[in-house]
Design a protein around this nucleic acid. Structure first.
Lengths: 356, 356
DNA sequence: AGCATTTATTGGAACGTTCCAAATGTCAAG
DNA sequence: CTTGACATTTGGAACGTTCCAATAAATGCT
């Protein structure tokens, strides 16, 4: 008797056909009195099915509360409508703006973004990418963690997977890139200081291990050239791209033989650190020494004094990144391999006229 | 000859077995000289397979760069490790903080958040939920769009799907809820004004169509009661929860017979609108009239003058929501059906002592 | 009436996993 | 040498879709 076990299971399964789990295409077919193939055609909006049939099927679908199973479909046809986003930290407004831009464009193509947090750590980043791949995302927008090299990247991605790199240049990387226009941003920042009468303007923070550094320094140089001045390379002071680094760099700047009266900084965090050191040294930021940051992070406005900085149009860059990803996924030509977002100088109170 | 078409296809498929698309469990099995079942067992870390075998298989996996196909697995076993997040707008820092909190907890369970934007529109919200369901998410955190009713919600969700409602109460809704402690928040806000000497404090913005309104007004009342005062209901001035609404409400307040000297507002946006109107009327916010907002959106700090407001610990609420969602998914008991986040008064410059 | 063409419909084989029942191999005890 | 117990491994049937080739039905043409 125990042998009938299997048959029994089947029987029971048949008995309790409708109760658990979602209805399938086959349930629909049975109720509508057509074949599963027909239901599938209706689902795909094919013009092959007769109007009447389509309507019958659609009614049954409605009635049974059927929900399409995309995983199952994805198993058969290769395409997926997930797009992965790998970023440092969602709660950083810089990244969430980016994500929002991506989401907006994706939604226009009925795609859904799947988020993965890399925490600025290459190892976590690799895991995140793997998880995304396991889920069969159609492509990935990657905002590389620091220390990511072209090699790391090529390691993580199989040949065919569409990828767009955002915000942070990786040298020799074969993927389209979307990021801020560093040159123009630093041109604006430095130009602003020059207009205020400053003639000895330091470049604080970062070092050449950052791919963006070259461009940023180039912007600083160009601003000088444009008005017939020449930037003094001795005023480039490297440091870690952190608050601490900013403070250290400023310390060096203050006792520098070239006596800078102002500085542009690698980013806002460096600027904030530098600003604090000035304050602690009894100098008034914006009066005794002018400082400009880069990124326009939320904190820049909170700071004391509110930081003059360069905003990089983060949301728009997210949109551009997503646009390119979709093009890649569809196999279309990509608008341009390198998109540089417009930058905008935001004048607050950390800059003022040169008093020397 | 044309008839051999099918066979030909097969042949070709066999010929070019490895080139395109990802390797499968079967490819691994073939190379490792075991059955697909064994590979599957290895993948699941089963203790049934011999150590040697496991190692062989793992080597081959490594070697072929095999990537697990979760959709395929999901087809067979019912569970998914996607969790849906439905929110109004990612670029609103209020929501992105929430999402970040959710992401953090989810990551701890190796789950991935899938984002869907409802744009504060019930129709888009329903679509978003449907899309998420089609993708087989294991559960959803929903921050309901305005106008969402218990009925709308029950309409969108099948019986079994785990759902946690966040940030915005929906009456008679069977799902666990996580949101700010409105009563205590308004208690703090109003208490702050009372301490500053204000005795005629208006409640600006919102109306009873907002589920949260009752609680917020209750907080305002309680603050009065706690010090033996009695709130004057005539000072409740409804309006749309927008900048414009805030300005309108403030206009009414200014010509109000009860002459309020301060106001608590339904949220920060209302407060900002009210603040601007005061400014335009030549009154100094913080000196001539005090204003407190609610939410502590990023803009609150940028505003002129920086807005005194109540922060609701958004990120933490995201974490609590995710925690409950996971419990629901696992079929465990939920910590509590209703979690109220701690609120914190942030004093900036839109409030000051009563001068009357 | 017979055949070709078009229009609708359909069964079955994929897709890459997991699960089950069953098969195999090894060993110890009877 | 059987038998049973245990440790490993395995083939095949699911899961819910899509695609293809084949069928069925309806229509047009001679």
């Amino acid at each position: 008797m125990l042998k009938s076990n299997k048959t029994l299971r089947k029987l029971m399964a048949a008995k309790v056909s409708t109760p658990k789990s979602r209805a399938t295409i086959i349930d629909i077919a049975r109720v509508a009195g057509v074949s599963k193939s027909t239901v599938s055609l209706v689902l795909q909006g094919s013009s092959l099915v007769r109007k009447e049939t389509r309507e019958t099927v659609q009614n049954v679908i409605e009635q049974l509360g059927y929900v399409y199973n995309r995983s199952a479909a994805g198993l058969r046809q290769a395409k997926s409508d997930f797009a992965g986003i790998v970023i440092g930290d969602l709660s950083n407004p810089f990244f969430s703006e980016l994500a929002a831009g991506i989401e907006e464009v994706l939604a226009g193509y009925n795609m859904l973004p799947v988020l993965a947090n890399a925490n600025e750590d290459p190892v976590q980043q690799a895991n995140a990418i793997r998880a995304l791949r396991e889920h069969g995302v159609a492509g990935i927008v990657l905002s590389p963690a620091r220390g990511t090299t072209a090699w790391t990247i090529s390691e993580s991605f199989p040949k065919g997977l569409p990828v767009v790199v955002a915000m942070c240049v990786v040298d020799d990387c074969p993927f389209p890139y979307v990021g801020p226009d560093n040159i123009s941003g630093f041109l604006q920042a430095t130009g602003h200081l020059i207009e205020l009468g400053h003639r000895s303007i330091a470049f604080l923070g970062g070092d050449n291990s950052f791919a963006v550094q070259k461009e940023r320094i180039e912007g600083w140089r160009k601003a000088h050239r444009d008005v017939g001045l020449v930037a003094d390379d001795r005023l480039i002071i490297n440091s870690a791209p952190s608050r601490q680094g900013g403070a250290e760099a400023m310390e060096i700047a203050l006792s520098h033989p070239q006596k800078p009266t102002a500085a542009v900084c690698h980013n806002d965090v460096v600027a904030l650190g530098a600003s604090r050191l000035l304050h602690e040294s009894g100098l008034s930021v914006g009066r005794d020494f002018s400082i400009v940051g880069f990124d326009d992070i939320a904190e820049a406005a909170y700071a004391f004094p509110p930081l003059t900085t360069v905003s990089v149009g983060t949301r728009n860059m997210g949109m551009e990144a997503a646009k390119r990803l979709v093009q890649l996924i569809k196999g279309e030509a990509v608008d341009s391999r390198k998109f540089l977002g417009e930058t905008k100088l935001i004048v607050r109170q950390s800059t003022g006229p040169c008093k020397v």
